[in-house]
Amino acid sequence: MIQTVGSASPILDVRNLTVTLHTPKTSVRPVDRVSYTVNRGEVLAIVGESGSGKTILNLAPLGLLPAGVDSDLEGSVKFEGQDLLTSGEYKLRAVRGGGIGVIFQDPLSALNPVRKIGRQIAEVAEEHLKLTPRAAEQRAGELLSLVGLPDPLSRLQQYPHELSGGQRQRVGIAISIAGEPRLLIADEPTTALDVTVQAQIISLLKDLQRRLKMAIVIITHDIGVVSGLASKVAVMYAGRLAEIGSVDDVLTRSVHPYTLGLLNSVPTLKAPIGSRFSGLPGSPPDLSRRIDGCAFTPRCSHAIPGCERGRPPLVHAPGDGPEHLAACPVVMNKLALELA
């Protein structure tokens, strides 16, 4: 099949991706037949708890897994028409940092502690944009001012430990966009930061996305931070998508009880003072075991006896657009009845 890279085709097309990881101690399947697309200039938020597979889903196809882990990837992950799963390490390296930029959760561990910040940014620009060292250094200065670091030129000469957490994350973002990527993958970019800095970083990402016309995939466990940034939201549970749709569909007309549980667990300024916090009971399932039926059943308040038989498929939510899909027949049947 010939695929043309036009503006109509999605920049990232993930089809039936399954990831199995093997370490000397155990094997797990953190991603199980997941499909989604990201269009040019779109912001997709992938939300789920620790261990839901959301990070592996994004990093495994790029070959970014910790050393000592063997991975089996099935399905296809097409970036601008090129299947990343069948690309060799050499081609992947050109994609990483070039076509796809990555922001990591912990900015300190993603930066080299003994090299100047300017060099670290310039390196990426040299590699992917084929700039001369001097031009790359100049570009690094521009990038630092683009990500809103005050006094960017003197920052170029600083080392990571001389910066605060928020400033380091800005440097991390500058590095990730230095190769002028068309897609930015941000893995929990705000989790390690204060609420105030978190707001700054979210607003920076929104601003960059608009100015550089990038697509962004933001991975987070905090469904609270996605409402102002994402255009599309995918909720992931136990290696599968529980719900996916436009940000308004998923956050305001949520279908899946897991999505609702995540939304309810975000503390708001509306709950009565002194009242109990609402969250999700229990913890996510062990992904090294077989899961029968809906993986969320043990923690679900809507669960009925049929739920532990057969994993529910992802289908259109009744009454909503064709883009809004969810995997909970119990709630969907109720909705369909109400509509009828």
Partner: peptide, 9 residues
């Protein structure tokens, strides 16, 4: 003011 609202609207 920095606390995000979960409602996108």
């Amino acid at each position: 003011s920095a606390i995000p609202d979960t409602d996108p609207r």
